[in-house]
């Protein structure tokens, strides 16, 4: 695989974003290498989604920069977007297209020939266990899980070299989830970089080769699972243990004895 970005797939330096007085992201710097399954964790309001939006060219940072495989996201957004696939958390889709039409549109916009788009769309729908009849229903009639599957397939159809996935397994059934995890692992083995954000710490621990934990808009810890365990001082610590230790568990003072 050609190495475009000096051996770095996703690179960010000093990314900062303010919304009025609130500093949502405060000088985040990251380097993710090709073939890494990179976990991006944090509590609610930590700045994960804002960072993801800045990395994928949807939100312009107030300070700092981001590159995808060497392409500056904000200097040439179109070139950068060619290299990546994005699955946003809420899977916003065009409700009046069928799942199939959405995949065909996304593939064709990325410049794929029609036959190839259809071949890939079929393969992705099979992987996601999206029944033939469901593929040709309007997205507005989809369940949450089906919309998520189509959204994920749309993010993957052009075989991006960097995939940004925000809560990809929310609402997806166990069978499809297992198949998708397998496909993602295979893609990583072939050199695809996956930037993965989730609140399900067990899944992150199982899948990711490197993890960053953010809170208050800043990266608090970053490294492999072994690095994070070393940081926590416990060799048998789970990711949840590290997460809680690092960010501190909220004190439970409410009297719930009646429950």
């Amino acid at each position: 695989m050609a190495d475009v970005g000096n051996g770095v797939s996703v690179e960010a330096e000093g990314l900062t974003k303010r919304f009025g007085d609130l500093v949502a992201v405060d000088g985040v710097s990251l380097r993710v290498r090709p073939g890494e399954f990179f976990g991006f964790l944090g509590p609610n309001g930590a700045g994960k989604s804002t960072t993801l939006k800045m990395l994928t060219g949807l939100l312009r940072p107030d300070a700092g920069w981001a590159r995808i495989l060497g392409e500056d996201v904000w200097a040439d957004p179109v070139s950068a977007k060619r290299l990546l696939g994005v699955l946003p958390e809420e899977s916003p889709l065009h409700e009046r297209l069928t799942g199939w039409e959405l995949l065909v549109f996304t593939g064709r916009v990325h410049g794929l020939p029609r036959d190839e788009v259809e071949r890939r769309a079929r393969a992705l729908c099979d992987l996601m266990e999206l029944a033939e009849s469901d593929r040709h229903r309007l997205v507005v009639d989809y369940s949450t899980g089906m919309a998520k599957k189509v959204s994920l397939a749309a993010a993957m159809i052009h075989a991006p070299r960097v995939l940004f996935l925000d809560e990809p397994f929310n609402g997806i059934d166990a069978l499809a989830g297992r198949a998708i995890r397998g496909a993602l692992r295979e893609a990583v083995a072939r050199g695809v970089t996956i930037f993965f954000s989730s609140h399900i710490l067990e899944v992150v621990e199982k899948l990711c080769t490197r993890i960053a934990i953010v809170a208050g808009g800043q990266v608090r810890a970053e490294g492999t699972m072994a690095d994070l365990r070393a940081l926590s001082g416990r060799a048998d610590a789970t990711l949840e243990d590290v997460f809680v230790q690092l960010l501190g568990a909220a004190p439970t003072e409410a009297d719930l004895s009646w429950l």
Binding site: F105, R108, G111, D134, H136, D141
Partner: peptide, 30 residues
Amino acid sequence: RRRRGRAGPAPGPGPWTAALPAPAGVVAWR
């Protein structure tokens, strides 16, 4: 209540989309 799917796939972007500079034709189709 959810609608049942249609019997077959709808036609994709036709050859007319090539009349516009790519990918404007596909955008027009969508």
